[in-house]
Design a protein around this nucleic acid. Structure first.
Lengths: 172, 172
DNA sequence: CGAGACGATGTCACTTGATGACATCACCGA
DNA sequence: TCGGTGATGTCATCAAGTGACATCGTCTCG
């Protein structure tokens, strides 16, 4: 993060990162699949948390309600470390390569949620669509949350975003 | 495409592609920014078509209706060459690197639609959310369309997908 | 205590993707 | 015919990864 902020992502070489960490480039690649992955460590935990929240939603919950439960868990996970999140987000948004990675992480997350919904008996295409809706809400809400200079309530932002989403897709 | 299908994306080298095309690797990189971009030539036309359709929707149209107009244009563009689309899609889905690129193209498309909606006076976050909804519909509908062995009506699939999307986000 | 297994790291060599600098060559218009 | 322009080739070079092998410290078992 230091180097990416200092001189930009493309301009910093893996050798430099490794040097600052006091290891070798070869070692770097044993910890991270590639140069981008450094910024996405911990995304498995997020996914795991979301899926667990989805699964522990009551069986009577509608698909959307189950996803809302997952969103709440996501807000708790993402809603800490506002300052750090802002720095990280600005680095990612400044680099198409990193943004690509971010997007595929989100897509993976979406697929995991869809799978969880299917396990709950939700048929296709509803499972996929509900999951995708959830991910759009996470992305958009996180984006506005992170754009605010001071930390606010991410869960609330997500709920508002979801409400707008519902309004908008029903032709409001 | 030939080489990517024959031996997989990662396994084919730029030198091979260039050789089969009868040029040099250096020339390849003058036509395509990178190895993946080969599969995404023409995506600017798609974007342009969608945005134009969005703009030529009547001023009285709701945001969602305007996006539906764009979707129709997209269906016309994407809905041809079913066989080719299937091959291309399977190659992309088999390779995370390519899928990443696909996702960022879609994100760019989404942002272009959002910008078009803003020009129509749609405020945030509705513009972004409506555009994202449209893109989800394109992605999911295209996925099911391409999964069918025989060509069907993509526009119809999109409409059905959008209807499910509306049902699902309103808690159905 | 000592031998050996194991995990983390380093070293080296190599492939491939990607880019800059410069040379060529074909073609087009004055 | 001359000169410009655009497309391509050649060459050198850098950076991202990866495989093979060596090294070193630690932990465990007899």
């Amino acid at each position: 993060m230091q180097l990416y902020v200092e001189r930009g992502f493309e301009q910093t070489t893996v050798a430099e990162i490794a040097a600052r960490a006091g290891v070798t480039a070869r070692t770097f690649f044993r910890h991270f699949a590639d140069k981008r992955e450094v910024l996405f460590a911990g995304s498995e935990q997020l996914q795991q948390g979301l899926v667990e929240a989805l699964e522990s939603a009551p069986a009577s919950a509608t698909p959307l309600e189950a996803v809302v439960a997952a969103l709440d868990a996501g807000a708790e996970f993402l809603g800490r470390h506002h300052a750090h999140a802002r720095r990280r987000h600005s680095v990612i948004m400044a680099n198409p390569e990193l943004y690509e990675r971010e997007l595929i992480k989100m897509a993976t997350l979406s697929e995991a949620l869809a799978e969880g919904l299917r396990r709950r008996g939700v048929p296709e295409p509803d499972a996929t669509l509900t999951a995708e809706t959830g991910i759009v809400v996470v992305r958009v809400a996180f984006g506005t949350w992170v754009s605010r200079p001071e930390p606010t309530d991410l869960a609330a932002t997500m709920r508002e975003t979801l409400a707008r989403m519902a309004a908008v897709t029903s032709g409001g």
